[in-house]
């Protein structure tokens, strides 16, 4: 019975991991065909860097992730500080509204933002994708900063004001240093989620401005080329490492 249970668990784990492991191994295959192993090689990874489309998409992905993380961290940290100080009812309302982008399926968020851009006649492209990314990043920043605010001494801000600090001075010298670890976690999470996103980007950009995931999607619809294997494998590892790092931070902060 015991061995049977272990075999069962093993089979399920194999099912979960085989596709990804095979994809990564195949990306190192020297041959064009996936039918046979023709030796270890990095040519597909090399080809990635020669492809102007992929390099362009890489630039878009990374620059949007950096900008979205930056803006959403500023916006989210300020928002968290404000919401934390609110009275009960407005606070509950804000937290509910803040939850909408997180509970809504990505496809609906993407489409509702797309409709906003259609309605306001903003041409979809780089800027709209950035705005969308900021929108779905901020709630996670708020969720990372909020616990740190709750741990903080309630009176230190008021004390600073009583001692003659302006609200801005108190923000930078009293509140921010205390919540910094949460802010950094939030920024990292925002950056990673932005790199990770496919669905919302897909609906808020035009086919002319593609990030890596929309590029992979449009290529994969036509069948998978070895360069796409390499790109997927690469993205896969980068995203996983980033998320593991963020999660480790959150875990150690909770303790």
């Amino acid at each position: 019975m015991k061995t049977l249970k272990r075999i069962y668990l093993g089979l399920i784990l194999l099912f979960l991991y085989i596709p990804i492991v095979v994809l990564i191994i195949q990306s190192f295959n020297a041959g064009e065909s996936r039918a046979k192993w023709e030796g270890f090689s990095l040519i597909w990874y090399g080809k990635l860097f020669d492809d102007p489309n992929i390099m362009n998409a890489l630039w878009i992905t990374v620059s949007i992730a950096v900008l979205a993380a930056l803006f959403s961290t500023v916006l989210g940290t300020l928002a968290a500080i404000g919401i934390h100080a609110m009275r009960k009812r407005p606070q509950a309302l804000m937290l509910t509204l803040n939850n909408i982008p997180m509970t809504m399926p990505d496809i609906v968020t993407g489409i509702s933002l797309m409709l906003l851009f259609i309605f306001t006649q903003v041409e979809r492209g780089y800027v709209t994708m950035l705005l969308a990314h900021i929108t779905f990043d901020v709630p996670y920043v708020i969720l990372s900063v909020m616990p740190k605010l709750q741990q903080m001494n309630k009176n230190s801000y008021e004390a600073a004001l009583d001692l003659g600090a302006t609200p801005m001075y108190a923000l930078f010298h009293v509140i921010l240093p205390e919540v910094m670890p949460g802010v950094i976690t939030g920024a990292m999470l925002a950056f990673t989620l932005s790199l990770d996103d496919f669905t919302i980007s897909y609906f808020t950009t035009s086919p002319l401005v593609q990030n890596l995931s929309t590029l992979i999607y449009s290529q994969a619809r036509k069948g998978i080329k070895p360069t796409m294997n390499a790109l997927s494998a690469l993205m896969f590892v980068v995203l996983l490492v980033l998320l593991l790092l963020v999660n480790k931070r959150t875990d150690s902060q909770e303790k």
Partner: peptide, 18 residues
């Protein structure tokens, strides 16, 4: 935590004709 799109592509490449 793995990207759904990439996992789907991995599954796709496993099931492909070759």
């Amino acid at each position: 935590w793995m990207n759904f799109l990439l996992r789907t592509i991995a599954m796709m490449s496993l099931l492909e004709d070759n």
